[in-house]
Design a protein around this nucleic acid. Structure first.
Lengths: 342, 342
DNA sequence: CTGAAAGCGCTTACAG
DNA sequence: CTGAAAGCGCTTACAG
């Protein structure tokens, strides 16, 4: 079983190995009779092609690499569901690389991108500018790359992408808070170098400006896209002399930490402080209170990104046209936002 | 760049391809002088070995497959962190296959296990009995398999494994509830065919029996390891004439759904119903109230499973001795368990 | 220490 | 439709 090769099958069926190969890969090029004979021999020997040899010969691995900040975030898990579904349908396996957890240096990111031979790369994570350079210099030459969940950075402008309009969505979230009467609105963003977060911050600032609301220093703090980061950030926010009456968190994961800290400070959500998130992860609905947030069509994003990648792989490498597909977002109103108390 | 092979390097360095190969893989077998000359040629040409050819030639992929119920569960995400860390250290990439999401048939599981050539398999998911058979029949012959997070099923008894003592841990959880004065204790387990869940149910039943507490029908309900399943289960539990004063959830994910439903029913946690979970996922601490639960050394489990797999890969296939390593669990007391009200 | 050569298991023009 | 043969890029005994 472990080591029956195409030769054994050929011998047993009384044909050449070329014919066996054809039976498997181009059955229409073979007589019905031989096809049956070979099939029998395959069954009898328990043969299955050595995928290593196939990959080598064909020059493709049927492996794609997905780079994302953290698979732990339920949002990315959901996107990956879509990626996986589409990948499986096309016969690809996927390898996931996290950038956040192992806080890689740019060189390491570059090395990672080229080290493991894959047929394509999906970027769901912002690269630092230098990381982007590494990518565009080295990896782009070898395999197609598609971006998902966030806009593409200027250095990679020719890559296709699929994402919501993060700026508009953040504006919608902020405007919703404003519409409820809030004037002092804080924001917890991710981290400095995150495009995702950058866009959401942009949207927030735009909405505040459009509403002519003041924007104090110390009202916009980083939360590292993590629970602990958000808890820290929330404590900062609550210390402000003019404490915000509402907080916009750049993702739901952080909103969970934020809400916890607000309550730990003896304040009520939403009576004292309203909280709004982003992503609509599956926990949003069972939080206490249930989280008002922006939902994204996660599975759809994943599938579309994967399908676009497949198309590029099939077309041969070829530079992308940088075409970016915007998918719709949605404000999901639950219970974590109320009118301001003060 | 995309297509410089070992030949070009050899020509440029004025040596044979064998020597180039040696410089890369066994530098000590080569003179310092040639080594330097070759290194230069490698840099100049921008050569990097074709991993497809290497894999093929060496007969190994440096790829391992992890089978788990759902990557969405933060518990498994945490275990995977350990797996990844250890894998990276040894030069392996990992492919994840989820059984729960795509509710695969046994045949599909079998096909999946053999389809993609990997150097080894880590099972973090229970296979149905038939799935196990497929596995032991087909796949075991080809590559080493190691089990993590749960005991190994009888059919696979010779596989090594790393996990907590789920029975003992569940007993500890239940005993803690009992020690707080609870007598009517319900349980939400996962699903019928889950060993993980089975053991936790066993521990619960053992503790109840030891304490001579009654165990009504309808107090032990399945929650499918999901939030929605747990919500449904909780509603059932709350409908019971003798409503339990405490609920033991077989994992934290379900505890989140459970707690939400208890509160949605207008009851207080823990004033009216105490809730205890299992896993100590990162959200446990920020739940409202913070969840009392059993913690597992997730990262350690992941690393150890991966390391054991590596050892087996290095040793050649060889049947396992079925040795199972038990890692310690811990009761983490927070606020979701109180004294019974009635 | 180094090179020539065999061979890993397949796929695919090229003849027939 | 089928077979003989070349070759994908590497690694590794085997001589020297």
């Amino acid at each position: 079983m472990p080591d029956v090769s195409i030769k054994e099958v050929a011998k047993l069926a009384g044909v050449s190995i070329a014919t066996v190969s054809r039976c498997i890969n181009n059955p229409e090029k073979v007589t019905e009779k031989t096809r049956l004979r070979v099939r029998e021999a395959i069954v009898e020997t328990g043969y299955s092609p050595n995928t290593l040899a196939q990959s080598f010969r064909r020059g493709r691995t049927n492996l794609i690499m997905v780079v994302l900040p953290s698979i732990g975030d339920p949002f990315f898990t959901a996107v990956m569901r879509g990626v996986r579904t589409a990948a499986k349908a096309k016969g690809y396996s996927v390898i996931i690389e996290e950038t956040q957890h192992n806080t890689m240096t740019d060189d390491e990111i570059g090395a990672m991108l080229v080290s493991r031979q894959t047929d394509g790369i999906i970027l769901l994570a912002t690269m630092s500018p230098f990381g982007s350079e590494v990518l565009s210099a080295k990896s782009r030459r070898r395999v197609p790359v598609v971006v998902g969940c966030e806009k593409v950075s200027p250095e990679l402008a020719d890559l296709p992408s699929v994402h919501v309009d993060n700026v508009a969505a953040a504006r919608d979230a902020t405007n919703y808070l404003i519409s409820q009467g809030h004037k002092r609105i804080g924001m917890i963003y991710g981290q400095e170098s995150s495009l995702l977060t950058e866009d959401r911050e942009l949207g927030y600032r735009a909405a505040m400006k459009a509403a002519k609301l003041p924007l104090k220093d110390g009202w916009v703090v980083p939360g590292q896209l993590s629970i602990s980061g958000a808890r820290q950030a929330t404590r900062e926010l609550l210390k402000q002399p003019d404490r915000p009456t509402a907080i916009f968190c750049a993702n739901d994961e952080m909103a969970m930490g934020c809400m916890h800290e607000v309550k730990a400070a003896g304040l009520g959500v939403p009576e004292d402080v309203s909280v709004i998130g982003f992503d609509d992860i599956r926990y949003a609905e069972v939080m206490d209170p249930p989280l008002t947030t922006i939902s994204q069509p996660t599975e759809e994003i994943g599938e579309r990104v994967m399908n676009r990648l497949c198309r590029r792989i099939e077309e041969g490498r070829g530079d992308g046209n940088g075409d970016s597909q915007i998918v719709p977002h949605d404000l999901v109103v639950r219970k974590s936002v109320g009118k301001p108390s003060g």
